[in-house]
Design a protein around this nucleic acid. Structure first.
Length: 594
DNA sequence: ATAGGGTTAG
C-alpha cells in the first residue's frame, strides 16, 4: 500500500500530502509498526516535513512506542530550535520517561524551561515519572516547586504524578501534601495516595484512604482493588483483605483475573495455600504474574515439590518464565535443599531463557550452596558475581556459617556486612551465636561490648496476631496486654504439658535472638510465644493461628512451637522476616531446614 | 498532537 502511493506522492499538493502522511503515521503508531513508520519518515524527509513540529511529534511518538529512543532523539534534534514547541518537548520527555535513560527526561525538562517554554499538564507527569523511576527526590522537588508556582500542582494528572514521585522517594508526608492540594480529585489520584501509603509501610492509612474515597462516592477500580489486596497481603491483614474481596464481588470485579491474581498472592501470604490454589485454578486467563504468585507462594512456605510441579506445568503450557519466576524456583530449591536441581535451573535460566541472573538469584544460589555445607563454593560465587554483592547475599552466607559452625568464615562475612550496613545489630547477633556455639565466650563478650560502644540499636522483637479483626502485638517479656495474666497462665500450663511430652528448654547461655540478648531467661516469653498463647485462649479450639514476627524465630521457640501445635491440636503459621513456618502435629513445614 | 495509579520477588 505504501509503495504504490509513494510514486504519486510528490505530485500531491503539500497540505494534502502532510495530512495523508500524518494519518499513515497514526496507524503505524497504533500498531507500533516501526518498519512502515520508517518509510513514512523517509517520505516526510523527502517532502521537507520531518522538521515540522506536528509531524516530528508523531515521529517521536512512533519511535518511542518501539523503544527506539535514539531514533526519536534524532528526529527531535532535527527540529530547528525556534520550532521546538511544548508538544515536541513533551513527546521527547515522555520517550525518556518511559524507556530511559530517565536522567535525560529531567535534563530535557530543564532545557525546555531554559529555552523559555512553559511546561504544561502533560510535561509535569512525564518529567515526574522519570524522577519516580530514579527516586530522584531533589529533582522531583524542584519540578514540584515550578508546578506549584504555575499552579499546575492542583491539576489531577500533575497531582497524581507528584503523589507517586514522593511516594517512590519514600516521602509519604509530602505525597499527602501534594494529594491534599489537588482540587478535582479523580479515582487515579485516590489510587496513587493509597499506593503511597501501602508502599511506605502504612497499611492502616491506606485502608483509611480507601474508606474515605468510598464515602465520597468514588467507585474503586481494578487498580484500587489490586493495590489494596496487595496491601492486605503484605501486612497479613486477612480480614481487611477478605472485606475488600467481598467488596470486589459485590461490585462485579471478581471475574477480573488481575484482581484474582492479587487474591492468589494474598491467600498464599496468609498461609491459606489451599484457597490460593483454588483461586489460581479458577483464573480464566493465566499470565506470568499469576504463575509467579502461586509458585512463589509454595516456595515461601517451603513446599518445593509443588512449586516445581507448577513450574513444569507453566512451561508445558508454553509460558516463558521470567526473572521473578526464577526467584521463586530457586527459592523453592533452596528451601527444599535441592542443590543439584537448583544448579540445573540456574544454568537453564541463562542458557535456555536468556535471563541474566540478578542479585536475588545469586542470593538463592548462595543460600542453596551454603546450606548444603559448600561454604567455600558459596563464597566464590559471591566473588564471581558481575554486580556488587548486597547485604542479603552476605547474610545468606553468614546464616549458613552459623548452621555449619564455621567461625572463620563467619568473621570474614561479618566484616563485609559491616561495610554494607554498619548499624544492623542482627548481623552481630548471628556472629555472636556462631562464637557461642563454638564456646568462644571471650569473643562473645568482646562483640557485645563493641555493639554497645558503637551505640548500635537492636531491633526490638515484635510479634502480632489478629483476632476478631483486631491486631494484638507483643514484645519480648511483654506484660502490657490487658489479658497478660491469662496469657502467662496459659504459657505455664503449656510449658508443663510440653515438658511432659519431652520438651527440654535450650538453656545454653547464648543469644537466642536479638531480643533476648541480656535476658536469656526470658526465652519462654519470646514475643511469638506470647502471641500464640493469646491466640489459643482467645479463639475456639482447633482454630488456625497466624503469627507475624519482625525477626527470625529462634531455635528454641521453633522446637517449642512444634510441641505446642501437637498439644493443642492446631495449625500454627509463623511468618517471620525470612519465611513461613507451618507447624502441625509436632512438625514444621520447613523440615527444620532454615 | 501528548497524560497520572495497580498485582508476582527483594
Amino acid at each position: 500500500m505504501l509503495s504504490s502511493i509513494n510514486k504519486n506522492l510528490t505530485r500531491t499538493p503539500t497540505p494534502t500530502r502532510a495530512s495523508f502522511l500524518s494519518s499513515l503515521l497514526n496507524s503505524c503508531i497504533a500498531r507500533s509498526a516501526t518498519g512502515p513508520g520508517k518509510q513514512v519518515h523517509a517520505q516526510l524527509i523527502l517532502s521537507g516535513l520531518s522538521r515540522n513540529p506536528f509531524s516530528a511529534t508523531k515521529l517521536i511518538t512512533l519511535y518511542s512506542a518501539s523503544h527506539s529512543t535514539s531514533h526519536a532523539r534524532a528526529v527531535f534534534d532535527g527540529i530547528p530550535n525556534r520550532d521546538r514547541n511544548v508538544f515536541v518537548y513533551n513527546a521527547m520527555i515522555r520517550a525518556y520517561a518511559w524507556h530511559g535513560p530517565h536522567e535525560h527526561a529531567i535534563s530535557l525538562f530543564q532545557t525546555m524551561v531554559e529555552n523559555g517554554l512553559e511546561p504544561d499538564n502533560f510535561t509535569y507527569p512525564f518529567a515526574l515519572k522519570a524522577c519516580s523511576a530514579l527516586s530522584a527526590f531533589n529533582d522531583g522537588r524542584d519540578i514540584h516547586e515550578r508546578a506549584f508556582m504555575s499552579r499546575w500542582d492542583s491539576d489531577p494528572f500533575v497531582g497524581a504524578a507528584l503523589v507517586d514521585m514522593y511516594s517512590k522517594c519514600g516521602s509519604v508526608d509530602r505525597a499527602r501534601d501534594a494529594f491534599d492540594r489537588v482540587t478535582d480529585r479523580d479515582v487515579v489520584v485516590w489510587n496513587s495516595m493509597i499506593a503511597a501509603y501501602a508502599h511506605n509501610g502504612l497499611p492502616t492509612e491506606a485502608f483509611e484512604i480507601l474508606r474515605d474515597m468510598s464515602t465520597r462516592g468514588f467507585r474503586p477500580t481494578v487498580a484500587t482493588l489490586v493495590t489494596t489486596i496487595a496491601t492486605a497481603a503484605d501486612a497479613a491483614m486477612l480480614p481487611q483483605g477478605r472485606e475488600i474481596h467481598g467488596h470486589g464481588v459485590r461490585m462485579g470485579f471478581i471475574s477480573q483475573d488481575k484482581v484474582n491474581t492479587a487474591l492468589v498472592d494474598m491467600y498464599a501470604k496468609s498461609g491459606r495455600l489451599g484457597v490460593a490454589r483454588t483461586v489460581f485454578e479458577s483464573l480464566k486467563e493465566r499470565r506470568n504474574v499469576s504463575w509467579n504468585a502461586i509458585i512463589t507462594g509454595y516456595a515461601m512456605h517451603g513446599n518445593a515439590e509443588e512449586a516445581l510441579n507448577l513450574f513444569d506445568q507453566m512451561r508445558s503450557e508454553q509460558f516463558d518464565p521470567d526473572h521473578i519466576t526464577y526467584v521463586g524456583v530457586l527459592a523453592a530449591c533452596s528451601r527444599g535443599g535441592l542443590l543439584e536441581l537448583g544448579k540445573k535451573h540456574f544454568d537453564s535460566m541463562k542458557g535456555d531463557h536468556s535471563i541474566d541472573p540478578t542479585v536475588q538469584h545469586y542470593t538463592c544460589m548462595v543460600d542453596l550452596l551454603a546450606h548444603a555445607g559448600q561454604l567455600r563454593e558459596a563464597y566464590d560465587l559471591i566473588n564471581s558475581m558481575p554486580m556488587s554483592p548486597d547485604s542479603a547475599v552476605w547474610c545468606a552466607l553468614l546464616n549458613a556459617c552459623k548452621i555449619h559452625k564455621d567461625v572463620e568464615m563467619g568473621e570474614c562475612v561479618l566484616k563485609k556486612l559491616i561495610e554494607l550496613e554498619p548499624d544492623d545489630a542482627g548481623n552481630y547477633v548471628i556472629l555472636s551465636n556462631i562464637y557461642a556455639q563454638a564456646g568462644k565466650w571471650d569473643e562473645v563478650s568482646d562483640l557485645r561490648r563493641s555493639i554497645a560502644e558503637k551505640g548500635i540499636k537492636k531491633t526490638i522483637a515484635c510479634s502480632w496476631i489478629e483476632v476478631k479483626n483486631q491486631v494484638h502485638s507483643f514484645l519480648v517479656g511483654d506484660a502490657m496486654h490487658a489479658q497478660s495474666k491469662a496469657i502467662y497462665a496459659e504459657m505455664d500450663r503449656l510449658e508443663g504439658l510440653m515438658r511432659d511430652a519431652g520438651y527440654v528448654p535450650d538453656t545454653e547461655p547464648v543469644f537466642h535472638d536479638v531480643e533476648n540478648d541480656e535476658k536469656a531467661g526470658l526465652v519462654r516469653a519470646h514475643s511469638e510465644r506470647l502471641a500464640i498463647a493469646f491466640g489459643i485462649i482467645s479463639t475456639p479450639p482447633g482454630t488456625r493461628l497466624l503469627v507475624n514476627k519482625n525477626l527470625r524465630v529462634c531455635g528454641d521457640c521453633h522446637v517449642a512451637i512444634k510441641f505446642i501445635s501437637k498439644i493443642v491440636g492446631r495449625e500454627i503459621v509463623i511468618r517471620d522476616i525470612n519465611r513461613y513456618h507451618r507447624f502441625k502435629d509436632g512438625e514444621c513445614s520447613c523440615g527444620d531446614y532454615w
